[in-house]
Design a protein around this nucleic acid. Structure first.
Lengths: 210, 210, 210, 210
DNA sequence: TATGAATGAGGCTTCATTCAT
DNA sequence: CATGAATGAAGCCTCATTCAT
């Protein structure tokens, strides 16, 4: 797993530079020149490490996804072992801080969502990450439902709404700052999840709570 | 109420053309030339009606917002008079169909959210619409809570999560099509809302259902 | 001599509008649209009165020249009858106030001098005025020299330097405002002229009049 | 003092190209394309060396100013040591030949004077040069007056008229060629200066030196 | 006369990418 | 690896001029 050769370092430098510039100007307006400047390297050098601009973007998507996943793993490790705790750890990792705990990263992530609509290569990478994330949500939900004696139905839709809420909270946070209350997302999402869970019918003759 | 002078028609033509091109290529790649072509007019004419490209975008934001609001009004009129029905009408208007019942409109809306991060003029218009929408959600929620004898607390956060879920569902629908189940959003969101409502404590000694 | 028909008024309006816009932006950046706005008329109307933009400029040159000449005639009429007084009246008309007593007019005049270098039609009109002016200077100088018993030689060069000083004072006044002292030009030019005159040899042993 | 790196050469090439094109068409009509052609380089390359068109113009102003100053220094070195000779050397440098001994340079200089009215950045550079030049004139004049026992008053105004005469002679030379006699400027200006000097009162009853 | 829509050319600038050194 | 010069294609916008009404 020999990471961090000179080349890898350079690549990482460039990817982070794209993140910085893109957070400020968006993808299209992030010129190779400006990226190079942000990375403190020569413009011509960028194309030694990436075939074209889009490749940097794809790498950034991977990088941001990786960072989010890493945070999630950490939160899981620090959390209690109970299913609910693990589900909440997921929420904390993904909205408590957003991707990378970094406003720049969140801004990029929103732009990436938009770029993914048009650029197949970006979509592919973005989608892979979203699919994995959705799987995790389903896992955590199933775990909780099982643990609490609820029927496991409709998981796909529940997980989708949760994922949408997370993505949407990024958009709101960046595009309409100040409109939504500070720090509302994490606790309210947890509350919402609890609500959803408790609407699931009990597995064996028990009455559902509705 | 003389609507649609010649100039207004042209403007509408151009705004719709931006929507079409932008849905396919995104804002930055929607060139004035391609917009003019989509509108079947001369490229030079675009700047006869709009000072610059951004003005078209801002007009499109207003237009899309207006369309959504109109749909909402219609749904309200068609719905029953009960508070819950009105809240659900809101959901149907905003996610049952997305902005404009039109995939193009949804694609644009996601891009607009991203552009709003960087372009103050776009943000302003986008934000005004989001603020109004948030107010509507709060109104509808308050109505329901009052009607069902629940305490009215935490409305701001509840509404924010709902708004985020809607926005996020647009992003998922366009950027990772097929990942989430068809038509999941509207019913699941309603379910989620019910869950959230029923977690609100009762106003007078009655037991909450949790 | 029926002046001021409706058409003539419109033309004058447009010419003055060019002056206003040109003073602020220069000739090339004075668009037909901005000229029309300054004239409070419709852009399309401009080409009813002038074949093209250059024609307006040529008319402006004529207009400014006319104004200057008119001022000169007035000053002459108000001045004493002595040759020196008439020469000084010339100076007062041309630099005491500049063309039209109007900073805008002076700014235009400097630009016109530059445009005359490249545009033959402008040069022709500009040159006609300059030739007439030079003739006036020579007349006034000859008059003075004759009156003061000086030999009349070198008039052409003397007049040219005087004309150059006037033109140069416009450039300095507009391009480097504040660099030269307020109101220096008129008295100092008079002083310079006196110096030049008194260097002319006497015609027949008479003493100079100073 | 390593002058003329590759980049500096290119810059100089472009600046001279602007001079050539501008002499023929004026600043606004000197397109980047035509400048590139005159410099025998690719149009896109121009913006590799200059941020925008105006920067080229400002550089040209500096370049022309430098050339004039250099000529003046040379004339001074070649002239006698007497104050009058030095003052006359100034005149020869500035009008005997015009800026750069080059009609193109003179044509540009006139246009620059006009552009300076509108473009602050151009004005600043133009003004700096004019200020320096005015200082030189004052120096030379003071020197002469001191040497010839004249009172040193009114220097500012005398110098201003001289500077105006020089600038004006450029305008006349380019805008109305043939109107003024060939080569009139230098000798007549000298004559005018002598006239001005000899009008200055003597410091202490001494006779003037003429 | 008057309006303002329409045309089409061209200008400045930006930029991804390639290449010589 | 690294530099930064070079290329050429767009892109946005401005504008003089024409034209239908």
């Amino acid at each position: 797993m020999g990471r961090a050769s000179k080349g890898e370092e350079r690549r990482a430098q460039i990817i982070l530079a794209l993140q910085d510039v893109m957070a400020e100007k968006g993808y299209e307006r992030a010129s190779i020149k400006s990226i190079a400047q942000a990375a403190s390297i020569n413009p011509g050098l960028v194309h030694h490490y990436f075939g074209n601009k889009q490749e940097i973007l794809v790498s950034l998507v991977e990088d941001l996804g990786q960072r989010l996943h890493t945070r999630y793993i950490q939160q899981i490790e620090e959390s209690e072992d109970a299913p609910r705790a693990r589900l909440f750890a997921f929420i904390d990792a993904y909205v408590g801080l957003g991707p990378g705990a970094d406003p720049k990263a969140v801004a990029c992530w929103v732009s990436i969502g938009a770029e993914a609509i048009r650029q197949p290569e970006v979509r592919e990478t973005f989608m892979r990450f979203m699919r994995d994330t959705l799987e995790q949500i389903k896992l955590r939900l199933t775990e909780v439902l099982a643990d609490e004696g609820r029927q496991i139905t409709n998981i796909e839709a529940l997980a989708s709404v949760l994922l949408a809420s997370i993505e949407g909270s990024y958009t709101l946070a960046m595009a309409v700052p100040g409109l939504t209350p500070q720090g509302y997302a994490s606790p309210t999402l947890k509350q919402m999840i609890v609500g959803l869970i408790e609407q699931q019918p009990l597995r064996e003759g028990k009455e559902s709570s509705t």
